[in-house]
């Protein structure tokens, strides 16, 4: 009788231990609570794209700004914003800790943007500093900017027209 008890007890214990990962996963997951409030109406690209590809987009922005001097991004509605993580992204998404860090901590990703780029203080960016649609009229651009920017803007305008 005692053997029976031992055998079945042991088996149950084993089964419980072996299936522990499944049990653990059955518990409701503690998803990150990403702050979704923004100051602007639209994002530089559709949210679904940004969710999956923001790192690629940031890399492209970095390379085009640093290497080619292409400093402006054409928004879906045709307006221009500066290609800037600190000014455009975090000028709109209010908090670095609650928007970036929350998810990165959950996914255990450690990007080193903030080793050099200055973290905007939470809520410090009261205005959309990167978004200067009114100021950057085409004439103004052509007068003030370098040839490299002119070429870029012309190319992008063509692109925007084609898109419509």
């Amino acid at each position: 009788m005692l053997e029976k008890f031992l055998i079945f007890g042991g088996l149950t214990a084993f089964l419980l231990a072996a299936t522990f990962p499944f049990w653990q996963n059955a518990a409701p997951e503690d998803y990150p609570k990403v702050a979704m409030e923004t100051k602007g109406e639209q994002c530089v690209a559709p949210a679904s794209y940004m969710r999956e590809n923001h790192m690629q987009l940031l890399n492209e922005w970095r390379d085009s700004v640093v290497r080619d001097g292409d400093r402006f991004h054409i928004m879906p509605d045709g307006s221009k914003v500066e290609k800037s993580l600190t000014k455009t992204c975090l000028g709109c998404h209010v908090s670095q800790e609650k928007f970036c860090e929350e998810c990165h901590t959950y996914a255990s990703v450690k990007p080193y943007c903030w080793e050099c780029h200055v973290t905007p203080k939470s809520g410090a960016h009261t205005e959309l500093t990167g978004i200067e649609t009114e100021k950057l009229e085409e004439d103004n651009l052509l007068n003030n900017l370098l040839v490299r920017n002119r070429v870029f803007v012309a190319g992008n305008l063509n692109f925007a027209v084609k898109q419509q």
Binding site: T86, K87, Y112, E115, C116, H117, V118, P120
Partner: peptide, 10 residues
């Protein structure tokens, strides 16, 4: 005085 418009270096 850190100017937020320009990055620092590492």
């Amino acid at each position: 005085n850190i100017t937020p418009d320009y990055p620092t270096r590492e």
